[in-house]
Design a protein around this nucleic acid. Structure first.
Lengths: 217, 217
DNA sequence: CGTAAACATGACCGGGTGGTCATAGTGTTG
DNA sequence: CAACACTATGACCACCCGGTCATGTTTACG
């Protein structure tokens, strides 16, 4: 939804604006984020922002969507590979969670925007901004679930939509755990020692999937 | 931390202000909530608010704390009773979750404030406002965990603090599910038909407690 | 009654907000 | 060169914010 001007833009300038917007919105959320600050940090006149986007909301929605796309692009290779030979569906999914958490750790800007959208209170903003995220999840994860049903690892009568929604809600919180001292210490997601690091995240994923898993013969 | 004036206040007036504040902060959060709106809705001059509280933050913190206290008071009777004869610790805890969800359903104002504190992005506000909540949880839930350890239902080496933190993070999300169409449909927390209503909430609680439960003899 | 303390009030303040727009470049054409 | 579409810019707008404070009103007490 950005104006055509945005696409014609010198890419360095575009990158500066996007970067500044992610930082500001990531720190203060949609309503708290200031366009003045973004313009200043990007080294751009505030008026320019309105040459690129119709208003603040369109701007924020774009930033949120781009962030989702970037994260999605990062996950695609791991999704496409599918389960490794001999890897159960559950183990495969838990491996994806590890990739996700690692990515968020390494990309604080993306994590900030994810936090801002996850924590958004206003129902309208929340829904509008999370819709593309949900769509991407559906696009990426649904084939996995369908595949697991086809291979007999997931019960045939699994409510795939419900399962998707549950996972979409859960994953951001796993990545946001560092913001939540309590959760972090409880899950030990970011403990540095060994693979126990994500054991608790694996447990949470397991409980969501467990009721749908077909017992191994 | 309210000024003495606040306590001397005519109780009807105090109630009006508190009510308006809960509604406004519950809808728009701390930074988004407007004191002008609160004053108008309460039928009170804005200046009066500053006779009661030093600034906006103290006001918000007070509202959040009062809300926590109200919810806590509602839970106390169920906590004090302890497990019913023959009721396992897990079943007891799951029963408490039902009470919690029912309460939130019946009290949208309290749920709004809970949402506002849970969804707060700013780390400082978030921590300051959630600290009393955590303290209340510790006060109410910790004896239960200790009791379960004493009775041999929880492993003696359970990390009680970590377990507490995990539960504190989890519970609000169960109560906030109606705000989260995806989660709501996935968990079916608010399905109207029968006791299947909270089955998924029970599952989530179970996965948190499971690793610490001592297998029945 | 008179005096004093407590409280209510809303005009007012400085400052920040999202958003506009007339103006001034800046290329890119013919 | 002239003409034209495109874009960058920051002064400017109306509005709202949290917070102040001089003033008026109510209450309590002697």
């Amino acid at each position: 939804m950005p104006r055509p001007t945005w696409d014609n833009l010198d890419s360095a300038r575009r990158e500066r604006v996007l970067h500044a917007a992610m930082a500001e919105f990531g720190r203060h959320g949609y309503s708290g984020g200031s366009l003045n600050v973004i313009a200043r940090e990007a080294g751009v006149a505030k008026g320019s922002l309105f040459q690129y986007f119709a208003d603040k909301f369109e701007f924020f929605a774009y930033v949120a969507e781009q962030t989702s796309l970037a994260i999605y692009a990062e996950m695609v290779p791991h999704l496409d590979g599918g389960p490794r030979p001999g890897e159960t569906f559950l183990a495969f999914f838990q491996r994806l969670v590890d990739v996700w958490i690692d990515y968020m750790d390494a990309h604080p800007l993306e994590r900030g925007v994810t936090a801002a959208t996850t924590m958004e209170l206003d129902p309208q903003v929340r829904q509008a901004v999370r819709e593309p995220v949900h769509r991407l999840y559906a696009q990426g994860v649904r084939p996995l679930l369908d595949g697991a049903i086809a291979s007999g690892e997931l019960a045939a009568d699994t409510d795939v939509d419900a399962l998707l929604s549950m996972l979409v809600l859960l994953l951001p919180h796993l990545a946001l755990a560092p913001f939540e001292p309590g959760l972090d210490s409880a899950l030990r997601l970011h403990a540095t020692r060994g693979r126990a690091r994500s054991a608790a995240a694996h447990r949470l994923v397991a409980v969501v999937l467990a009721p749908h898993l077909v017992a191994a013969p």
